[in-house]
Each structure stands twice: as C-alpha cells, then as structure tokens.
Write a protein that binds this DNA or RNA. Structure first.
Lengths: 237, 237
DNA sequence: CGTGAAAAGATTGTATGCAATCTAGTCGGG
DNA sequence: CCCGACTAGATTGCATACAATCTTTTCACG
C-alpha cells in the first residue's frame, strides 16, 4: 500500500510531505490502528509513503513534540505509551483549560458555528450507530473534533493547538486505560454542552464541560498496575 | 565564534546536538539578542555551531513548534514576529492557565521549593540592580524562570511545557510591544506572589497571579499599528 | 530613465552514503 | 542446561550531493 491509494480520502492534509505523513500517522495513532509501543521504523514508514528517511524523520519529530510518539536516541520512534501519571496530567490540563475555552467560545459563538456543532454531533451519533472498526475510528474522530471545535470557536490559536495535543493524547490514554467505551454517555454530554452553548449560558457550559472531562477520567482505570509498577510491587519495593 | 567557546557556560543543554543548538538559539531569542524577523540561515547557523544543515534543520523545526521561529517553505526560518493579535492570544492563554497552575503549586509547595523561589527573586533583584545588556538578559531569564518554577512545583509536566512556550513567546512580545520595562513593578509582584504561596493562601495567590499577567499585558502597546495594517489603512482599504 | 524579463547566484528540500550504535543470534565456558 | 561474550545484521545519526525554488542582478526594450 502506498500513500497514493488514500491521498484523495485524506482530510486537511498539509501540502508539505512531512506534514502529510504526520497527519496520516496521527490519524492512525488516535484512531487506534497503531497500538501504543509500536515501533515506527524510519525505513518502513518511508517505504510505505514512498519518501526518504529524511522526510520521515521530520514527521516523527513533529509527532514526538505532540507527545504521540516517544523518540529514543539510537533506538528509534515508538507510538507513545502514556503512564497513568501522564494520563492524570493530561486530564488535569484539560480540566484546567477546557472550561475557560468554553466560556470564551460562548461569548463568540454564532449561528454558523452552532450548525457545525450540530453536524458533528449528528456525525458522532451516526458512527455510534454503525458497526465495524472504521466506524469506531470515525466516532473517535468526531468526538475529539467536538472539543476542538469548541477551541476553534474560542478564537485562540494557541489554546487550540494545546487542545489538539491534549485531545489526541487523551485518545491514546482511553485506548490504554478505558474501562468501557462510554461513547453514548459522552455523546449525551456533548448534546448538553451544545444546549448550554446555544442558550448562551456560560456558567452552565463551563460546569458541564468540566464535569464531562471528569466523567471521561472517571471511566479510566488508572490504578498503579502497569507493567513496571506491578513488577515493582511484586518485588515488595 | 563557535559553540565550543560557550559550551561550558550553558545551562541545562540537551546532550543531543540539535537540542543544544535549539537551547542556544532560544536563549538568544528570548534574551533579545536576535531581533524578531531575523533570518536564521541553515548554512550560517551550521557554520557557527560546526554542524551540518541536517542538525540545524532539526533545531529550527523544534523552535518553530515552540512558536519562537516562523518557518516558510522554500524561504527559510525567521525569528518570530508575533502580531498584536497573537500577543493577545498568548496573554489570554496565560491568564487562563497560570492561576490554575498557581493553585496547584500552592497545594504542593514545600520548604525546598520556597527556597528556590526566594533564590530566583534574589537573582532577579540583583540583575535589576546591575547595568549592561548581559544583566538585562539574565533579568529576563530570572523573571521567566519564576513563572516556570511555579509550573514545575505544580507537578504537571504538560502544563510546564505549555508555560515554557508561553513565557518564551511573552518575552518576544514584550520586546516588540513593551512600553516600559516595568521590571521593578513585575519584581514587586513576584514578591507578593511568593508571600501568598508561602502563606498557603491559594485564593489570594491565584488572584495575584492573574493580576500580574494583566499588568504585564496592560504595559503593552497592542494598538493595530503594525506595518502591514498601517499600509492597509493608508490605502483606505 | 523606468520597467520588466531573464539569467546567475544563493538557499532550501530531499535523497543517499557512511559511521556509530543497537539488536539478535551464536558459540564457548561453567 | 544456563549464562555471558562475541559477531553479524539491522537501524539510527549525521554529512554531503543534487534538484527545486527563491532572490538578486543584469540587460534589453519602451
């Protein structure tokens, strides 16, 4: 398979080749097609996309910055494998940032934006109703895009980029530590958030967004039972 | 001049060469030794640090991610030249994030951390009292490090990295749009923040941090009078 | 003399080659 | 039989070479 087989289907791909590869890899990681810890060999990725290692290295460096890839010197790049502690930090960051973003979005939202929110929620509902891994990936993307649209409407490009990183890494965390999918639950909360946004009720909106994040985190199993910690406990340290 | 002339003087330089060059360039940009808009030629930087363009490109890509460098395809990299709007977004982001970080830091601070804060404030005072561009650069660094220490004590690596970016970009913004240096004013507020932190008064701390950011932004001249907008207005568009 | 096209020079984007490092498999000793 | 050292293969880090693009200078034409 080469990149050309899917070039037409891609979303907002950058025009530069490194950015395009980064976008494709990110989609695969966030969509859980690439499991955490998977080795991303430069030669292999390069062969897949028909580019040299130079371009692949640039793409991997970008993903490393976003925290989706862990790069180890002389060893290569791997899909990130966030620890429970990192997971907590990711959600603590979202808990701090997103209610504020929502307040700002509430002040700036207009009819066009509300339509885009509604379209995303409809897409999300449609994918939840569908079966198959393709639908799961699309559902994850729609759910994340809901939060990103909030940041976009808020009109702050920096916070939007922070949110892109946090939402992407959240998907990895949920893949690793998610107890249930809880997608229908999250979806219902998205509807409530849109209601508050449409009503212009900034306080209710901020509260709902905060609770939404709490609920997602509450569905995680972040007990210190990862491989390394478990071993450590097993040895009685 | 080569990198070796200063290698011993560096701070926490990464062991990899691209990271080292990134750190050196960042220090120069944040310390206002490199003016916004300055071209960063790959060959020139490479010659200066005695590495190939490959390594320089990696360093510049990192700085582009941090928003300190603007990279234009086929044209090269330039020290970032944030617009007034970007400046507002930077400070809006800090206004949202930093009070929350301060609250978290308040809950986790210990005696050792308080000593580090005190040392930074003393360093800042010392550099303010000194003359010369070297002292100005050190003063800027100490002031920024105060905010970064707050994020470090808060114990969230993700927010700490966000703050690193925001503090660095703030320095660029102040260099471009700062009315007065107002360094003594900021320094006094740092003392007040440390007081609240030592007292464990999270509410007062969060309020002081928020006001501190407001004061820094208030000292900026962000009227839409940049080059391009002025030209646009002059042409009556 | 001013304007625009065209060519020369400079700079970036990408591919490739070599050295250094890591990994895996093999062999010998205990 | 298990463990460690050693060697062969694979992979990454970096430098360099070439192609594509941009910039500047030159020069012809109006």
């Amino acid at each position: 398979m080469t990149v050309h087989d899917h070039a037409a289907a891609g979303g907002p791909l950058s025009d530069d080749r490194a950015g395009a590869i980064r976008d494709r890899l990110r989609l695969a990681i966030v969509g859980r097609k690439l499991a955490p810890g998977t080795k991303l060999s430069e030669a292999e990725v390069g062969a897949l996309f028909e580019v040299s290692r130079t371009v692949v290295r640039a793409a991997l460096q970008m993903l490393a910055f976003e925290g989706l890839v862990r790069s180890e010197r002389n060893r290569g790049a791997f899909v990130a494998n966030p620890s429970p502690d990192e997971a907590r930090q990711i959600f603590a960051s979202r808990r701090l940032i997103e209610p504020g973003i929502a307040r700002e979005a509430c002040a700036r939202v207009d009819a066009g934006a509300l339509e885009r929110f509604a379209a995303l929620i409809a897409e999300e509902a449609s994918q939840i109703a569908s079966a198959g891994p393709q639908a799961r990936q699309a559902e994850i993307k729609a759910s994340g895009d809901f939060h990103l649209l909030l940041a976009e409407v808020a009109g702050n490009a920096i916070l939007h980029r922070f949110m892109e990183e946090l939402v992407a890494r959240s998907s990895l965390v949920i893949a690793l530590y998610g107890r249930s999918d809880a997608s229908s639950c999250a979806h219902a909360e998205h509807r409530g958030i849109l209601d508050a946004l449409a009503a212009g009720d900034a306080n209710r909106l901020a509260r709902l967004v905060g609770e939404h994040i709490d609920h997602i985190e509450a569905d995680l199993d972040l007990a210190p039972q990862g491989r390394a910690p478990a071993l450590k406990d097993a040895l009685g340290l």
